[in-house]
């Protein structure tokens, strides 16, 4: 059976791979959406922190023998801690100013972080082996899916949905949303708003660190890995609607799949298709697919 001249198994294979890259888009744009939603900061350092996550995993394994599984737990905490330091020392002074200041600061930070890693390790990238438990491939009938790629899809979906659940359905999430809506009033109820904001930023960049650890075995660990991805991820956030949690998850996965399909039919356009969609969405729905008009 063929669809538009492409055999069905090949198409299914590409859809599967689209879901893998979509998982990364979803996880990263989710972090951005959470941060923008709560802090009103356009966090351009996100890609650099994702890269730092991958590097921390590599350093952990190489210098201290920390396994992949421990990295999956420890690295997001470490990156989250870096985030907390950034928030306390720099970002907290910018909340009252225009968005542009936060954007410029985080963009500058991204350049500094990337530059440091590039200086130390060069750009060719460092190898990070797939953990033994996840090496090998699954025979899905239409393709051999490496177990590691299947793992990426599973884990990132779980993490994304858990985040959505916490923010939209729990008491803690309700506090967070209230703190965004009206910080003064929330504070008056005895809730420590600055602490919540700090933890939110830590959590958002922790997600980026987590995605970095997930990416390390799949790609070469390289200082450029973040900047290659971050522009697309911002397009995802814009298409989904700035600050919309569920929107960024669904758009991330959806755009991954669309990109995958583009690679089947016209590979040359695969790096552009996301931006074409962004332009169309902005024309028709300026607030994004899931965003609310203000």
């Amino acid at each position: 059976m063929e669809i538009f001249g492409v055999p069905l198994p090949a198409l299914m294979g590409q859809l599967m791979l689209g879901l893998v890259s979509g998982s990364f888009y979803a996880m990263l744009s989710l972090g951005l959406a959470v941060i923008f939603g709560m802090l009103n900061i356009i966090n351009f350092a996100h890609g650099a922190l994702y890269m730092a996550g991958a590097f921390l995993a590599w350093m952990g394994l190489t210098y201290w023998g920390i396994s992949y599984w421990w990295s999956l737990l420890l690295v997001p905490l470490a990156v989250g801690l870096i985030g907390v330091v950034i928030e306390r020392t720099m970002l907290q002074w910018l909340y009252k100013l225009d968005h542009l200041y936060g954007l410029l600061l985080t963009f500058g930070l991204a350049l500094v972080i990337e530059g440091l890693f590039r200086y130390q390790y060069g750009v060719s990238g460092l190898p990070y082996a797939i953990p033994d438990e996840l090496s090998g491939a699954l025979n899905l009938g239409f393709m051999f899916l490496p177990k590691y790629r299947a793992w990426i899809i599973g884990v990132s979906l779980t993490v994304c949905l858990a985040t959505w659940f916490i923010i939209e359905k729990t008491q803690l999430g309700a506090y967070l949303r209230a703190a965004t809506e009206n910080p003064q009033l929330t504070q008056a109820f005895g809730i420590n708003v600055p602490l919540m904001v700090m933890l939110t930023y830590g959590f958002g960049v922790g997600l980026a660190g987590f995605a970095g650890v997930l990416a390390a075995p799949a790609f070469q660990v390289s200082p450029l890995m973040g900047s290659n991805l971050i522009i697309v991820v911002f397009a995802v956030v814009v298409i989904g609607g700035m600050g919309s949690i569920l929107g960024s998850i669904l758009t991330g996965l959806g755009l991954g799949v669309i990109e995958g399909l583009t690679k089947v039919f016209y590979a040359e356009a695969s790096s552009t298709v996301v931006f074409i969609i962004m332009a169309i969405v902005l024309l028709l729905r300026p607030a994004g697919l899931f965003g609310k008009e203000k």
Binding site: L17, G18, A218, F219, N228, L229, A267, S270, S271, T272
Partner: peptide, 14 residues
């Protein structure tokens, strides 16, 4: 494939 890229799995599958 577009230059530069990170994920080549789709192209490799082809």
């Amino acid at each position: 494939h577009p230059f530069p890229g990170t994920d080549f799995s789709s192209f490799l599958l082809k």
